[in-house]
C-alpha cells in the first residue's frame, strides 16, 4: 500500500503538467477557466493522497523517537 500511495503521488505530479489544456478557453460553469479548475482539482487530489500517506505511510522511526522522548522526559521528571 505504501508503494501505491507514493506511486499515486508521483502520478499526480506527472498529471500536473496538463499540456492538453494549455490552449483551452473552455469555461467551467461559464466562469472558471478549465486550466484553473483542473489545477484546483490537483489541489483536492493532493489533500486526498496526503491523507492516504498519513494512514498508510506514517514513519515508524518517528514513533520510536517519540517513545524515546517520552521515556527521557519521564526519566528526568518531565524537565525540558
Amino acid at each position: 500500500m505504501k508503494k501505491l500511495v507514493y506511486g499515486l503521488i508521483i502520478l499526480l505530479a506527472i498529471l500536473h503538467q496538463d499540456f492538453w489544456l494549455w490552449d483551452s478557453e473552455y469555461l467551467v460553469f461559464d466562469i472558471v477557466p478549465i486550466g484553473l479548475a483542473y489545477h484546483a482539482g490537483v489541489s483536492l487530489a493532493a489533500a486526498l493522497l496526503w491523507a492516504m500517506a498519513i494512514k498508510y505511510c506514517w514513519p515508524d522511526d518517528v514513533e520510536v523517537l517519540e517513545e524515546e522522548i517520552a521515556h527521557d522526559s519521564d526519566a528526568t521528571g518531565g524537565a525540558a
Binding site: I9, H16, D18, G35, H39, S43, A46, A47
Partner: peptide
C-alpha cells in the same frame, strides 16, 4: 498551476 497546486503537493 505554477505556484499553488505545486505548493499543495
Amino acid at each position: 498551476g505554477m505556484m499553488a497546486s505545486w505548493s499543495g503537493i
